[in-house]
Structures are given as structure tokens and as C-alpha cells.
Design a protein around this nucleic acid. Sequence first.
DNA 1: CGATGACTTGAATAGTTTCAAAGCGAGTGG
DNA 2: CCACTCGCTTTGAAACTATTCAAGTCATCG
Lengths: 255, 255
Amino acid sequence: MSHLASSSLNNLTFSHGVDASSSAEWPVLIPNGVLSHGTTVHTRRGQPLPLSIAGEETVFVVRMATLLFRLTLPGDLRQGVSLLYPGDVFRSAFVPPGGEARLLALTPGEVLRFRFDAFSELMAAAPAARAYFDLAVARQMARQAIHLAAIGQLDCFQRLVTFLMELALHTGAPASDGRVVFEMPLSRSEIAEYLGVNADTLSRIMSRLRGEGLLIQPDRHTVYVSDLEALAALSPASPALMSLCGGAAPEPADL
Amino acid sequence: MSHLASSSLNNLTFSHGVDASSSAEWPVLIPNGVLSHGTTVHTRRGQPLPLSIAGEETVFVVRMATLLFRLTLPGDLRQGVSLLYPGDVFRSAFVPPGGEARLLALTPGEVLRFRFDAFSELMAAAPAARAYFDLAVARQMARQAIHLAAIGQLDCFQRLVTFLMELALHTGAPASDGRVVFEMPLSRSEIAEYLGVNADTLSRIMSRLRGEGLLIQPDRHTVYVSDLEALAALSPASPALMSLCGGAAPEPADL
DNA sequence: CGATGACTTGAATAGTTTCAAAGCGAGTGG
DNA sequence: CCACTCGCTTTGAAACTATTCAAGTCATCG
């Protein structure tokens, strides 16, 4: 379930003639200069990470965990904004002021925490750290654009497929028979919030996917995908997700 | 609520009567080091800005215009991802690889274009440019989080109200009687794409708003909002939008 | 003018949510 | 070890919102 395992999954499952020249995209390596500074936070499932320490802005670097950035609008409207995986970064200034927002750990793991000022100085001193941060932010912007397009344009079924693809690509590991396994770090209602869908509706759709044999769930927190390509074919967002997670650098010709 | 609602308008149109303590937030000042470099692009309405020049990554800095970042998924599913206003930045790496994406000018204006490498060097040399870029990116992240929450959690009516609030706060000017005027830089179908709503449905809702007297449209591209606070009260996303655009710095206590 | 494209509106339909009830699982105390 | 309870999940039927499709209106431009 490590991110190393997931990258090999990508290479094994989707060989779209991805040239090796641009293989450095994923997983993003965290520079040593970053790893050696910062406070290590050990996360528990469900643990909120405080967005400011002593009134100061913070930066988080995900070393080994899955995090959820969640926004709550007045009226108990909760929206999962983004999922953060190893290599991702989060700056407290990403949070809209005035709204209620939380950064939640979904799995046990390790996260590095910095004061923003300190991180900023570190980046000024170490160009590798700077380049890492900029790349990570850009990648997350791109992921959020896909998430937005999925929620805005796709129906419930396609949204769920997109979400499963995201998890499979980021945290999945190959299993027997070309299957893919991953842990489901979100509860049903958390998934529903992330997808902008009603929890009841979501449950129905998952039953449908299970019924069609695309999904196997030995228990509620473990998911087997029988045929990842068949699953991918069910969502228009899959190609974008796969080229973002799959190691291919953006090709200027495609822009 | 009133001081938040009016402060951005004040900044744009009147001279700075707002308190100086948090005045640096909006509008974001583009440092001279940035303004003096880069290629100035004069935009026309509808003009696409090429996301790469000679195969190289680019950075855009919006000086005076409104831009739309639009993503298209297979099957002609177009989603407006974000609107860019003066002071905003766009890096071509924000675009998910493999998907079709466009950066469109919605108004005539001026945009600065850089090769990413050159911009990166500029930022390394000028800390003010670096701080500006980081702040602009963070602010846009926050705005996109609100946009996502609006699309994921609100009904069609509330989404439209949220969109109108966004435009009013960013590009609106006070008119007589405490009214607010702004140009509508998007067509109906573009608004619909931005909000993840059907264009027919959108038209119905605008008629409803006009019927309730909240909106007055002398022509299709000009909008008067009779009572901004009344409009704001119709969307749960308004407080977040207003504190983001209204000049208040994020208060750590709120996080 | 007459034509074209953008916008509006109505009626039928499809998809999603709501509400309520029942099912399952993990943890607790008898 | 079992019954109990609590929270999360599943499922059904009714209600509702939003979409689709088609027809009609408006505006702009040659």
C-alpha cells in the first residue's frame, strides 16, 4: 500500500507507451532538505491537523498518509475539497478565510509540519525544495480541476467511478489475477461529501457496482477492483486522472 | 456584513478609505519586478491564450482582464474551472495533462506572459515577486475550494447567486442608490458550464431573479444588483466569498 | 429585411434526494 | 458467551429538482 507500490501498479497496468524520459513526475520525491526540517506529526484516523500554530501560518508535507481537506458552508454543508497523498503539500492559506475548514488524517501515517515563514526561508535557501513545492502545488491544482469537472459534469455513477479510480491509482496495489486492491480510508458519508452526492444515493450506486462484479468488498474498508480498465472506461475523467497519476509529464503539444 | 460587501468595491472605485491593517490582501499588487519583465499580451474577448510557447511551460499574470480556465472532458463535457481577475496568476502546469484545456480571455485587457524558467529565476532574484506569486496561488486555491463547495453542495439557484456575488465582488462598481453594476463577461452557456448546470435551467433561474427584482439587466451584458446584501443572503457561500474578496486577512482564530 | 445564433419558456422525462424502516457490525456489560 | 445498543449502511417508495427536447422569441448583422 506504499506509494512505491502504487507507482509500480501504474507501470504494470497502463503501458500506454509512456516514454521513460518523463518518468520523474510521480511519485514526487520530497527533497532531503525538506525531510530533515519540520516537525513530524504522527496521525491517527480521523485526527484533525490544526491549521495554525500560535496564530502562524503553516505548511504540511504529507510523508506517508492520506489526508482530506474539507470545507463546511453555513447550514452544515460539508464538501470534501481534496485528498492529499504522500508527496502532497498543504498551506494553511489555501483555506478560504471566514469559512469553517478542516484538514483531517484519514489514515495513520506521518506528516511534516512547518511554520510558513520557516518553510519559506528553507525554500529560498534550497532550490530543490522550492521546485518541489511549486511542482506539488501545480499537480494538486490540476487534480482539483479534474475533481471539479467530475462534480460539475458527471452523474452520480460516473463520479463514484472517478473517485474509485483516483484511490486505485494513488493507493492501490496489484493483487492476483491483475486485480487491484486498496484500503477505503473514507466512510460512505465522507465519500458522499467528497463527491457532492447524497449518502443514500451513493450506497445504491456502490451496490450496483458490486452487483455488476466490478467491485468486490470483503469488508467495508477493503476494495478489490476486478478490471481496472473496465472501471476506467466508465468515467470520462479517467484519461485525465491516469495521465496525472501515471507518470506522464504534460506534453506541450496537448495543451 | 456591510463593511465586507462594500470594501472591495471601495478599493476598486473609490480611494482607500478602508483600514490599512489588512489592505495588502486585495487587490493584490503586482510587484514592479514582475511588471517590467514578461511579454504583454493584449486580449480580445474570446481569445484563447496558448498554454505553451515553443514547447515550454508558461506563466500568465493578469494585469487587467477577466480570464476563464476551462477544462473539457471526453464527450464534450466542458467545465469552467476558475475565473481569473487582475492580480491572478496562471501556470500552465495547473492544467491536467492529457485533457483538453483552454485559457480564454473574456474581456479585452492586458496579460503578462512569461516562460516558466524565466519567471522562476525572476522570483529567485526578487523576494517580492516570490511572495506575490505564492500569495496569488494560495488565494486562487481558496477561491477554487469555494467554487467546488458551491457546485457540490448548492442547488442551481444558490449556485447562480454565488456566481453573481463573485462577479459583483471582483468586478462590480457602486452605482446610484447603493446599487452595484458589473459587466457580464460570460454568455449564458459559459455561465452554465462554470456552474455545472444546464443552460436552459440557468436561463429559467435568471428570469426568476429578474422577476424578484434582485437583478436588473438593461441589456444582456450589463447587470445591476439592487441589493447586494439581499442577494448575498441567498447563498451559503457568500460569507466565504466576501471575506476572501473583501480585504480581510485570514484570522488564525477562525481556522 | 431575412437570416443566424443566442436566449427563453413549456411539457414530459429522468435522475437524485428525502424520509422511513430495516439490516448489519463493533463494542459493552450482564 | 450472549444479548443489547449505537452508529453506519442499505433499500424502498414518494416527492422533487433538474434535464431534455422542441417550439418560440429576441437581438445582431449582413
